[in-house]
Design a protein around this nucleic acid. Structure first.
Length: 466
RNA sequence: GGCGGCAUAGCCAAGUGGUAAGGCAGAGGACUGCAACUCCUUUACCACCGGUUCGAAUCCGGUUGCCGCCUCCA
């Protein structure tokens, strides 16, 4: 069985069938770069990076595109408030985005298109829509004529009539129909603007993704992904624009990740519970946050709290400990023991299970449980008196390989200790031999304060960073 | 009002027809000089009420509660 994806468009899991054999064209809606990203922005970044990593693990060539919205109302506002210019703000927070997301082990996109660098494509896109009768100019603005697109509402499962009933009709509206949405908006004096056939202005929000997806990935792409909240209206509108223009299916698979709550409350500015990635990674290992995010299925809501993060840290430590336990037993391992083959087969079976779970709509929660199965078995194996290099290698290699698919590093860095610490450890070993436990405990406590944890095992004393 | 989602042990979380994975926390035991790591043992009337079925956490109907989208939003 190959990869199954839950497709928002059809509301069911479907076998993934790429447009081109061995390739995945994937477009993920990126951030509007007017501030540091919050933890809610981190979820799609981590989740879809994992989707990408898994495809790559399955030998797909993934053309991953993530856009930056580098001009819009929020950016203009931020620029005004900070006494800066839109391009400076954008540049600053694009760098911040890359840094934050990089801390989580998110791989850089193949293409990171920006709105301001694709203005001619956007204008061309809008222009053709106007020519085709799907859009119209009105007082310097250009709107998409929603009723000209028959299947409008297919992604969010809403009927156009229901939407029309609920839509707001604003005073002074220049639209023909309340459901029509902006493709191009005329600018106020002094605002950042571009020349267009409809006068100076800037693009509406939805059009950029349609134009850039087309430019970088083609008229039909494999996967279009983003947060659940983008389903309507953003993605619905993208479909309308792109399919009205190209007269082809826009994206074959639509993936949407669930929301994040903070301490059981919606994250919102009014509640003051916005958690910025920039801040939280000062106090929490980004790997723990990544692990935590992946311990829940990507389509389900996830709650974020200090206590939950603490639990995730302990969980991840268990896996990393197992890896270190294996590492530690390498030296005393023998060439081969009788039951090598049995264990190696068992490890191989876990790997297959991991793949099955990931194939099932990227069920990372279950994939992680396979990591725990591996962890448990590795520890059990290490209980035996004689261990074999081959089995230890199999455990380590598989554990590391599978964890890496999720973007989790299980191997500790093999850094060296400074001489003083090294000498203390040696002194403690001698002290224990002489049953001078008072001195031994003193050294252990001292090193613990320095962030070095000592553990005495039957194979000798070892240390790790705490 | 329209559309959609969720309700599983103290906590987190899989499971979508065959008598409930995994993790955290807790308790007891083993190992240890003491710890740590690790191992063993240990905890579920699957929100409620009906229905379908030989059999349902899982399907259908209803009830209650919570949440998201419909307006900028990951």
């Amino acid at each position: 069985m190959g990869i199954q994806i839950y497709n928002t468009l059809t509301r069911q899991k479907e076998a993934f069938q790429p447009i081109e054999e061995g390739k995945v064209r994937m477009y993920v809606c990126g951030p509007t770069v007017y501030n540091y990203i919050h933890i809610g922005n981190a979820r799609p970044a981590i989740v879809f990076d994992t989707v990408r990593k898994y495809f790559q693990y399955q030998n797909y060539d993934v053309h991953y595109v993530l856009n930056f919205t580098d001009v819009d109302d929020k950016l203009i506002k931020a620029a005004n408030e900070l006494g800066s210019e839109v391009p400076e703000i954008a540049e600053r927070f694009i760098e911040a985005y890359k840094e934050d997301v990089g801390a989580f082990g998110v791989e850089e996109a193949v293409d990171h298109p920006r709105v301001t660098e694709n203005m001619s494509e956007i204008i061309e896109f809008i222009n053709t829509l106007v020519e085709k009768g799907h859009a119209y100019e009105s007082g310097g603005d250009v709107y998409f004529r929603t009723r000209s697109f028959d299947s409008y509402g297919k992604l969010s499962q809403q009927s156009i009539d229901e939407l029309r009933t609920g839509a707001r009709i604003e005073v002074g509206e220049k639209k023909e129909d309340p459901l029509d949405f902006t493709l191009w908006k005329t600018t106020k004096d002094g605002e950042i603007a571009w020349e267009s056939p409809w006068g100076e202005g800037r693009p509406g929000w939805h059009i950029e993704c349609s134009a850039m997806a087309k430019k970088y990935l083609g008229e039909t792409i494999d996967i279009h992904a983003g947060g659940q909240d983008l389903t309507f209206p953003h993605h619905e509108n993208e479909i309308a624009q792109s399919e009205a223009l190209n007269e082809k299916q826009f994206a074959n698979y639509w993936m949407h990740n669930g929301y994040i709550k903070i301490e059981n409350e919606k994250m919102s500015k009014s509640l003051g519970n916005f958690v910025l990635v920039h801040d939280i990674i000062k106090h929490h290992d980004p790997q723990v946050i990544r692990f935590f995010m992946l311990s829940v299925h990507y389509r389900h809501p996830i709650n974020f709290s200090e206590a939950l993060l603490e639990g995730a840290k302990n969980s991840l430590d268990r896996i990393k400990n197992a890896y270190e336990n294996l590492e530690h037993r390498k030296q005393s391992a023998t060439n081969q023991t009788e039951d090598d083959e049995q264990w190696i087969q068992k490890v191989e079976a876990y790997k297959n299970t991991f793949i099955e779970e990931m194939n099932d709509d990227f069920n990372t929660a279950n994939a992680i449980s396979v990591l725990f199965d591996l962890t448990k078995d590795a520890n059990v194996y290490l209980q035996s008196t004689h261990t074999s290099e081959n089995v230890i290698a199999a455990f380590q290699h598989t554990l590391s390989e599978l964890a890496e698919v999720l973007g989790i590093h299980v191997a500790g860095e093999n850094e060296l200790l400074d001489e003083e610490v090294d000498a203390l450890i040696q002194e403690r070993i001698d002290a224990r031999k002489n049953r001078n436990f008072q001195r031994a405990d003193e050294i252990r406590d001292d090193l613990k304060d320095r962030g070095i944890i000592l553990e005495d095992t039957p194979q000798g004393t070892r240390w790790k960073r705490g």
